[in-house]
């Protein structure tokens, strides 16, 4: 967060706390889900070289949804090792393919 202002720091910290509490307090997130969301947050705010994951996630959220494809995308997201760039890129390609497949399916 080079040269970040306090507002951005507050936003980042509050998001970390919310994600963590959803696991620890409410139990609505599993440990894997918590770790994944925290890593995505770091990618978006702290990361200097986001290879396009946030854009891909927005694309997914904006598309016409399918329950089965959604659960496969979620499982793919959870299997990403965020410390390994190859793992990130490989799984992003899979997600991209799934979004495309879903679009074709919906377009008939």
């Amino acid at each position: 967060m080079p040269g970040a202002n306090i507002k951005l720091k507050q936003l980042y910290d509050a998001t970390v706390n919310t994600i963590t509490k959803l696991h620890l307090q409410k139990g609505t997130l599993s440990m894997e889900e918590m770790h994944c969301l925290l890593s995505v947050l770091d990618q978006v705010i702290m990361g200097t070289g986001d290879p396009g994951l946030s854009k891909l996630l927005r694309q997914w959220q904006a598309s016409e949804r399918d329950e089965e494809v959604d659960s496969i995308i979620k499982a793919t997201l959870l299997s990403i090792d965020f410390a390994d760039n190859d793992s990130l890129l490989r799984n992003m390609e899979i997600i991209k393919g799934l979004i495309l497949y879903n679009k074709k399916l919906k377009d008939g």
Binding site: Y12, L38, S39, L41
Partner: peptide, 14 residues
């Protein structure tokens, strides 16, 4: 060599 962000701290502590 892991950038010690708040997120990484939470993950490590967890």
């Amino acid at each position: 060599e892991i950038r010690p962000t708040y997120v990484e701290l939470v993950k490590e502590a967890h």
